[in-house]
């Protein structure tokens, strides 16, 4: 199994931290082979930022993403730029629906979570939108177990922000919507419709 995950958005959104947490969850906690790489401009904030995580059961030679299985898009330009690199057959897209409104044609299944809105309104801190996105990922795909993500957040985030980040992660897990999602464990959602695809 080789899965390629891409997190993309603006610099300052925590795109790279999201990828690092995913890599720690898969690699350090689940014991898989991982290669996490990143692309960013010289700017500290505002430029395009991208973080790629390759997860495999075998030794990873080529460390870069060729055709992403999963794209977490946190900005409109990021979706526009990386939609073409998605695996149309197996791929899935998770969008921050606060910031991404236009969906290009021909996308694989799209899952929506208003990550920035949740971060701003519920947590008064837009910096945790990345954790909302990661929580959504754990619900949308089995590339990583939700419990592993929680442990990785707890181990890699400064202690005073741990509870905030874990709460944001949980909100993403609960709030994401899209085709074929089963109800979140412990959520009060009505029983989900029969899966029609996506998983």
């Amino acid at each position: 199994m080789r899965k390629e995950v891409r997190v993309a958005g603006f610099g300052g959104q925590g795109v790279i931290l999201a990828g690092v947490i995913l890599a720690q969850a898969s690699g350090a906690i689940e014991g898989r082979e991982v290669a996490q790489t990143q692309s960013y401009g010289p700017e500290a904030r505002g430029g395009a930022a991208r973080c790629d995580v390759v997860i495999s059961d075998k030794r990873i030679l080529y460390p870069k993403v060729r055709q992403a299985d999963l794209l977490l898009a946190m900005s409109q330009p990021a979706l526009a730029k990386y939609a073409v690199d998605l695996d149309a057959a197996k791929g899935k897209v998770v969008i921050d629906s606060t910031l991404v409104n236009e969906l290009p044609d021909g996308l694989p299944p799209v899952y929506r979570v208003p990550a920035t809105k949740i971060a701003e309104e519920e947590f008064k801190n837009r910096i945790v939108a990345n954790m909302v996105m990661l929580g959504a990922l754990a619900r949308v795909d089995d590339v990583v177990a939700y419990d592993s993500l929680k442990r990785a957040v707890a181990e890699n985030v400064a202690p005073k922000f741990r509870d905030l980040n874990l709460a944001a992660l949980d909100r993403g897990y609960q709030a994401v919507e899209g085709p074929g999602l089963r109800p979140a464990a412990g959520a009060n959602d009505a029983p989900g419709a029969p899966a029609s695809g996506g998983r």
Partner: peptide, 8 residues
Amino acid sequence: IVGHTRER
């Protein structure tokens, strides 16, 4: 690439 790739 070697310097910035996180891996085992």
